[in-house]
Design a protein around this nucleic acid. Structure first.
Lengths: 354, 354
DNA sequence: CTGAAAGCGCTAACAG
DNA sequence: CTGTTAGCGCTTTCAG
């Protein structure tokens, strides 16, 4: 007699708790209690428990997590949300470092990680309340009116990473690096090398990014504190126009708001025949492995992305489990990595004033 | 009269389909049909439909995806499984490229991505059948007895990426690069530069990795085809012993089974005072951005990870939706990127025989 | 065109 | 100690 092989290998209907209960001649409550513990008031004797375990094992029973999640209103999953990603590997390594930090605390706590990338605002609205996540780490969260309202309606806790400081009174936890302090390090480094006309370079499209705004502010403060003049590029087509802009303003150094902007600046400068660091010093921000790949290697402000992500994740888990002590926000200090893209300003005059 | 503010901002109980139905004085069936479409036989007039939509909008209704998933036995989520990750950013950029490829096809199909990293075999067993994923991309899947049995019992389709070729007759879809062809490229490159004693370097712990086995095989075939002698390091502590091993065997070139192994070899050679590429040529495998960060920059075989991942994802979605035409497996050809770690063997004698 | 009702698989009161 | 039962929120068959 031929055995139905397909049935043996991939049972069409997964075996349920009820199947096990019937096979073991007990109630589903007993099986649930024995196999999954839980706070049920049901007690089961050790003999029966062992029988149940044996039957479940023999039947190859696996709990259906979706049913359990529905019943318990808990998914043991957190989301990591990027609204604008545009290709994980095309840009710098921010994402990689971040996921590493998140994973490091998530998995050892039995949680799962759902990656939400390239989602637009409407998608976000649907996603956050759909019960599939217990909390979200929202990267680069902007603070526009629309987002604020969205957050207010969100039923799950949110931790903002690399975002604008939350509204006073908001209960969003907020983890970031000290962008202002980082820019102070960058300007201090260049100033000490003799540079006086130092530009800030950013992309027009990203001018409203929280981090970009904060870094620009930090840059301006650092320059003004030293009695210098801020130079800020605003052209939408900075890629081509910036070298000319820098020369027109006698700038001898530039700070990019990210390492990838700084790298592209390096390339434009090279095309324009401007040598780095001999004629122009360039500084970036983030200081991942990516800075080792540029020519020359990029001097950059380092933000401890991995540690920030790990901290944010732990804070989120604390929030989820109700340990809401009210203040989890944290600002991480930046450090500074000197590589090959900055040098002393040799032709430095003692004064740049006219 | 004071308004209960907390209730307005974060309704303790999310509004359900039933709430909407009651508010609109219709059945839940009608609401479900209007709001989510679906194959229900229920028809609703356009007037009523508009009313329902208005009420749902006013009440800020969001579907509970968990309940829907349970009902429909479908999660619109796929998993990406790494059994051994050990820190995303410590190693090469394989993961980043892979996630990029997966995301690129996943999100535009309305699917979600669940990342399962650092999970052990027991965890995997529980995860795959728990209803939270419709399919899995299993990276570096090994072909041991235990895994084969696990796969046989798995209720969801699996696509193996960078894995050993599946058992003949198995219905696991399999996507990989042409490891053998890649090693042929590496050996050909070195042979053409005059190298005759070329070693294969790998880590003892990873000797059973499918890709490692395949690459070793490809290396041996390429060497023997040219009448050369294979040299294979097997020491568990290759990091320190390999430079001596290479010298003892008069090797003038080495191929690492991954770019990170090749990089570490570069460092050991440097410590041993052996210059690359003047005295020793080194080739790696993968050829991501990482190869630009080594000193010198690493010549490497390139596997098109992003494309492979995108293909694997599309194949998985096809399998899930039942378009199981039987053969989705594919082998991607490798290419070769020459960088600074390989050079002509200047002292080449015409024969290395004693 | 519309509503009532039966579950998806699981957990936890509650009653014995 | 053990079983019965009422849902979690949703979809869909079935009867009107």
């Amino acid at each position: 007699m031929a055995v139905d092989k397909s049935k043996l290998e991939r049972p069409s209907r997964p075996v349920t708790l009820k199947d096990v209960a019937e096979a073991a001649n007990v109630s589903t409550a007993a099986v649930s209690r024995v196999l999954h513990g839980g706070g049920s008031s049901v007690r089961v004797s050790e003999v029966r428990a062992e029988q149940i375990r044996a039957v479940a094992e023999r039947m190859n029973y696996r709990v259906n997590a979706v049913a359990r999640n529905l019943r318990m209103s808990k998914s043991h999953t957190i989301g990591v949300l990027f609204e604008n990603l545009k290709g994980l590997s095309d840009g710098p390594l921010y994402i990689t470092y971040l996921l590493d930090g998140v994973s490091s605390v998530l998995f050892k706590n039995g949680y799962r990680l759902s990656v939400l990338a390239e989602v637009d605002h409407d998608n976000v609205i649907g996603s956050l309340g759909d019960g599939q996540m217990d909390g979200v780490i929202w990267c680069k969260l902007a603070r526009d009116e629309e987002t604020i309202n969205l957050i207010r309606k969100t039923p799950i806790p949110i931790v903002a990473l690399n975002a604008a400081a939350p509204e006073p009174g908001s209960d969003v936890v907020y983890v970031n690096c000290d962008n202002e302090g980082g820019m102070e390090l960058a300007v201090a480094h260049l100033w000490d090398l003799g540079h006086r006309n130092i530009a800030f370079v950013h992309e027009w499209e990203e001018r409203n990014t929280p981090d970009c705004i904060a870094r620009l502010g930090g840059y301006e403060a650092a320059i003004k504190k030293r009695g210098g003049t801020p130079f800020v590029t605003e052209s939408q087509w900075f890629l081509d126009s910036v070298p000319a802009y820098l020369q027109a303003n006698n700038c001898t150094a530039a700070v990019g708001w990210t390492e990838s902007v700084a790298d592209r600046l390096l390339q434009r400068l090279s095309e324009s025949g401007i040598e780095v660091p001999a004629q122009m010093s360039v500084v970036g921000f983030d200081s991942t492995l990516y800075c080792e790949t540029t020519t020359p290697r990029l001097t950059a402000v380092r933000q401890p992305i991995r540690e920030m992500a790990a901290f944010a994740t732990q804070a989120l888990l604390d929030l989820i489990s109700g340990r809401d002590s009210g203040q989890f926000s944290k600002i991480f200090p930046c450090t500074f990595d000197v590589r090959g893209s900055t040098a002393i300003y040799l032709n430095a005059e003692e004064s740049n004033e006219p």
